[in-house]
Amino acid sequence: MGLIDGDAFALPMAIQVDVIEARIDASERAIKAMKEAMANDVETHILLVSVEAGGCSGHMYDMQIIKRPEDISSFQSFVFDGITVMVHDKDSSTLNGIVLDYKDTLLGGGFQIENPNADKSCGCGQSFG
């Protein structure tokens, strides 16, 4: 038995997350790598960049190539040379100003995100806060 009954869903949330109109940039190398990764799926798929809780510094990035969502009312879209990148409204303030980059190195290579909102990052480089 819970502490509060079903009416609790109507109670106010602790903190509402800010939704802003985000700005995202991508380097030439990142756009090239995205094109290679998406190959023939450019029209039907998008690159979704999101933030999840975790890591030593509080947050971790998540990047997925997914089928273009049917309902995009909660997403913000950015098109780079035909490639669509989306972020969810909830992540807009955390991801505002990020630059997608790609490093072609064997160790620590792959997609990188430079985030001006990150004050700190953990030693392994996977987490930011």
Partner: peptide, 14 residues
């Protein structure tokens, strides 16, 4: 509140 990702269903009520 900041840690709930867009995929997760969690409501935090004070």
């Amino acid at each position: 509140s900041k840690s709930v990702s867009w995929k997760q269903e969690v409501k935090i009520i004070p």
